[in-house]
Write a protein that binds this DNA or RNA. Structure first.
Lengths: 412, 412
DNA sequence: CGCCGCACGTTATACGTAACACGTCCGGCT
DNA sequence: AGCCGGACGTGTTACGTATAACGTGCGGCG
């Protein structure tokens, strides 16, 4: 007997579903009996009129009673435990091949799908990790996601993506209780402030693009941002530029701080080089404004603008054009990241290509390693300078060094 | 007596916890006694060298034994059920205010977080919905997400974002069993092919930007794309353009098909208007190529290029420049969507602004309505023509209609 | 005076799965 | 002959939560 017949199940179970199956449960469920009153169901007051869309087909799917492993067991003539073993692929010497096949057939016929909620509860693990990214810059992190998701999938993990709040205040932290639903977290340091609740839950946390000494992280994975900045500096110095301006992202983030620091250090070593820093938010408009400020400010006009981001560089391009300056003849402009934008503008941007997908892959590998208990050691990923049309020797320069393209820094 | 003392629990329960409470359960929990051997811990064989980052701090977080509602009950001197009632805010006449407060205090002191996996299993609902978007275009859907997540949060729901596969083949459908983890799905029709498994699970599905008659959807929510296209056509016709070219997104999608259809219809009504269609993938390079083809093709050169997307328009701008054509003097270019890119290029794009956040909000509201059992009726959201510098009367035009800016289509 | 119902709680399940701890044959070894 | 151990399974339990069902005293009403 398969225990499903047991008499102890005297008590009736709760009403499985609200009665309505097709008809009209509409209004009642709305501000229902006692069901968790929606904190406030304001709806921003859009009185809907003229229904332009939507349709409820005749057949309203009436809450299919999911088939459980016990159903499969019954159909295959075995115990529920056997089903679990077979479908879990650990039946080596525990179930006869014949019955195993019967189980698989029954599962297939019934369209059995294991209930993940139950499995998660039982196992205490979910094979799901969270990827937290800043909301601001989407293309780069979209690619990071792609790489991370690929690696995760290869290991049987799913990835939940969370573009960190902005409209959604941290007040309403969506992960207050999510620890039971997640095995680990991969997060950009730029979105780290959204992580307070997750930290306290003690989840493994691998941080991207963050200070290796960050106390919050179990491990960190980085791009070789400093190397990219040095390549950029060498490129411009090699072209003969000495008056530079840095359009610095006005974001409190480790990476951007590192860029500023590295750039400063690189120019300190170059005799006669001067650098002006101008902060700007990460938008085209802000880049335009900052570049305008720098190009029209007092003192000698910079001959090259290093922008922390391709978006800023696009703004700088516009500023130059409005001032009647040609790029790159009158002023050089560089970006960072190598987004699609970099080749959409005219001239195309000299920039630093960040291997976004590889970054995501490396981060996910590190996280999975941590979940396996091993320490995750990951070298900083190399980046690459991509010289395009937005940089050239400055107007007054002789023949700088004989190479117009100093992609290789040459003498250290 | 607080139920933890009950005699009926005669059977020995398995070792409740590995003995350690503070000391060292670390390794044991890892690949513990019999605990689920990791299916395969390959690590994809990247022999890590030169650890550039990562660090395992001295204290390895030893799998914190989560505090349960029973722990809270014990601390507060009540039963577990009472804890559930109090924290679930349904203790109106069931628990004395004093005890209720004690429960809340205990929960706070112990840092209790309800186990979502258990709650989900018990309730059969997760208060979580999935948002499926195409991987290609990120900025637009990032904004859709923002709107959707805001509405969801206001109703106590979480949103899981899934940029539909590409690198991740549909073969490895991440949602094969996720039905138990999700209450519903909001999906762009462009990503609908990733939904096979979800459909079969019978989850409520609200589709964005899709054919209202789509059988797969429980409901649909749309932008007034057709209206936008008509505004665009009226704008260009009003400026005097008669030779138009349509750079059509080479994507099999309802929205794009609708754009083509509507544009054709609009021009059919305009005497003397001719339209050429050129398909292109959604990238700058493809837009460049398609525009080049159209501008250098046989017959009279089009004076206006309607692009299905700002990205394509950026490519068209580049093509015109390379051919020595000025925009908008020699050729007008329009985009669609009004992405950040639209104002990053020179000249800035005349385009159709899609209210992405409102779109996400409307979609989520519709989905939540469906989950509440009500039919979701949503009017198509209005869109807005944004006239910028990339459009002007064609070279040979007299004085088109006296207004250079036909933002208001005039006669319907 | 008897009993209803309210205020206040507690007990007992069940959700669906994974896996531990037992059983039962049966062939083979000492 | 005794019995060990492998093959083949099944029974049972627990994961942590939400809630239906079941008790209690106690004040008031008929």
């Amino acid at each position: 007997m398969t225990s499903d017949k047991d008499p102890t199940r005297a008590h009736r179970e709760p009403p499985r579903r609200p009665p309505g199956e097709t008809g009209r449960p509409a209004a009642v469920a709305q501000a229902g009996p006692g069901a968790a009153p929606p904190p406030d169901a304001p709806g921003t007051s859009d009185e809907s009129s003229t229904p332009g869309t939507s349709a409820a087909p005749p057949t309203a799917p009436p809450a299919a009673p999911r088939t459980t492993s016990r159903d499969v067991a019954r159909a295959a003539g075995v115990s529920q435990a056997a089903v679990s073993l077979v479908l879990g692929d650990k039946w080596r010497g525990r179930v006869s091949p014949a019955k195993a096949e019967a189980v698989r057939a029954a599962a297939r016929d019934l369209g059995y799908r294991p209930n993940l909620a139950a499995r998660n509860l039982r196992m205490g693990r979910t094979r799901t990790v969270l990827l937290v990214v800043p909301a601001l810059t989407t293309e780069f992190y979209a690619r990071v996601y792609t790489g991370a998701a690929r690696v995760a999938a290869d290991h049987g993990f799913g990835v939940v993506l969370y573009p960190s709040p902005e409209g959604i205040g941290p007040a309403r932290d969506p992960f207050a209780s999510a620890a039971a639903t997640l095995d680990g977290v991969l997060a950009s340091s730029m979105a780290a402030d959204a992580l307070t609740a997750l930290r306290t839950a003690g989840l493994p946390l691998v941080m991207l693009d963050s200070d290796p000494d960050d106390e919050r992280a179990t491990a960190t994975v980085n791009l070789d941002i400093a190397g990219g900045v040095r390549q950029l500096a060498a490129h411009l110095l090699g072209l003969g530029h000495r008056h530079l301006a840095h359009l610095a992202a006005d974001v409190d983030s480790w990476t951007f701080a590192l860029r500023a620091r590295t750039l400063g250090a690189a120019l300190d070593e170059a005799p006669g080089a001067v650098l002006r820093r101008e902060p700007a938010e990460l938008s085209v408009a802000a880049g335009l404004h900052a570049a305008h400020t720098v190009l029209t400010g007092p003192g000698p006009r910079p001959t090259a603008l290093l922008c922390d981001d391709d978006i800023l560089a696009a703004g700088a391009l516009k500023a130059a054009r409005r001032l009647g300056l040609r790029v790159p003849e009158d002023v050089s402009v560089t970006g960072f990241d190598d987004l699609a934008l970099a080749v959409a503008v005219e001239p195309e941007l000299t920039t630093v290509r960040l291997p976004a997908e590889e970054f995501g892959e490396a981060g996910m590998r590190a996280l999975l390693a941590v979940l396996d208990g091993g320490p995750a050691a990951v070298p900083a990923l190399p980046v690459e300078l991509v010289a395009r049309g937005s940089t050239a020797p400055p107007a007054g320069a002789g023949i700088p060094s004989r190479t117009g393209n100093a992609a290789r820094p040459g003498g250290r």
